[in-house]
């Protein structure tokens, strides 16, 4: 664990992408589905997942998309990134979605389908279930 950007505790299933995400324009703000055909998660919804991805990229307005998917009950339960970016950090801060930044080694240990418990107040914030 390198950094805790937004505190929280949640439990869920990992959805991992090795592609970065441009939240504006490539994530549907109502359903949370990825609409970019070149993206690893094309067609999948990020709703209620523990979303693991390298970082947010692109437009600054992506922060509103994160706030919108939360308001539309289509947001991930938590996000885990390899690199902190301001779009994701501030979107999660306002939408109150737990967000942590992990080391490259920790990042590569995550796989889609893993059940994990994330608790930013615990000495070991990520527990495999």
């Amino acid at each position: 664990m390198r950094k805790i950007l937004v505190k929280g505790k949640t439990q869920g299933t990992v959805l991992k992408s090795n592609d970065s995400i441009n939240f504006l324009g490539t994530v549907d703000k109502k359903t949370g589905k990825i609409t970019d055909k070149n993206h690893e998660l094309y067609g999948q919804s990020i709703k209620d997942s523990i979303l693991v991805f390298p970082s947010g990229v692109g437009s600054s307005v992506g922060a509103y998309t994160i706030y919108s998917i939360k308001s539309n009950n289509s947001a991930p339960l938590a996000m885990i990134c390899q690199k902190a970016d301001l779009t994701v950090a501030t979107g999660c801060a306002l939408a109150d979605i737990p967000l942590v930044v992990v080391s490259d080694e920790e990042f590569s240990s995550f796989h889609t389908g893993q059940q994990i418990l994330l608790d930013t107040e615990s000495p070991n914030p990520v527990t495999l279930l």
Binding site: S59, Y67, S68
Partner: peptide, 16 residues
């Protein structure tokens, strides 16, 4: 500031 176009920020953004 960005976050002005209703097409991008939607109802949640407008209400916020």
């Amino acid at each position: 500031l960005s976050g002005v176009n209703y097409n991008t920020i939607g109802d949640a953004g407008e209400e916020f």
